[in-house]
Amino acid sequence: MGDPVVKKFMYINRHAPCGTIYAVEGLEVVLIGAAFEQEVCMAFVDDGVYQLKKNQDTAALEIKNYAPAYRALGDYDVHKLYVERESLEQRGLTEQDLMQLTYEDEDDDWKEKPSLKVVTRIELADLIAEQDVLLNF
């Protein structure tokens, strides 16, 4: 066996956190996939940006609130989360409406750094073009 293959994986989240199961089951793939030590990032576009909204409350829907699980992503070494600016703007959202997600950078004395990065649609297109594997949820 040679060196293990490391590919660039991007998980593209396009659906709102509730209403369909895509966001929840997508997150399950990201968490399981973290064990494979690939180069991983996530993108949030369209209604997918709502997945990162602060203060989500699903009590009235009587379904489990998965939003806190996004805070664990940093511990799974998933810390490149790209949020499309146009999708935020179209929904009247700004970065201040989103959860503050951070990770500890092991290459920089475990400094706490932000995981979210707002990018334009054109920047996101370039990021998508760099990937080896795209998974859409």
């Binding site: 590919k7 895509y22 793939v29 996939g33 690939q38 594997v133 998974l135 859409n136």
Partner: peptide, 21 residues
């Protein structure tokens, strides 16, 4: 089987095609 089979498929294949909504 588990989701690891999906990730492995992404790693081992030249192309992963997603058919969905």
């Amino acid at each position: 089987s588990g989701l690891g089979q999906l990730i492995e498929a992404g790693i081992q294949s030249d192309r992963l095609l997603v058919f969905g909504d």
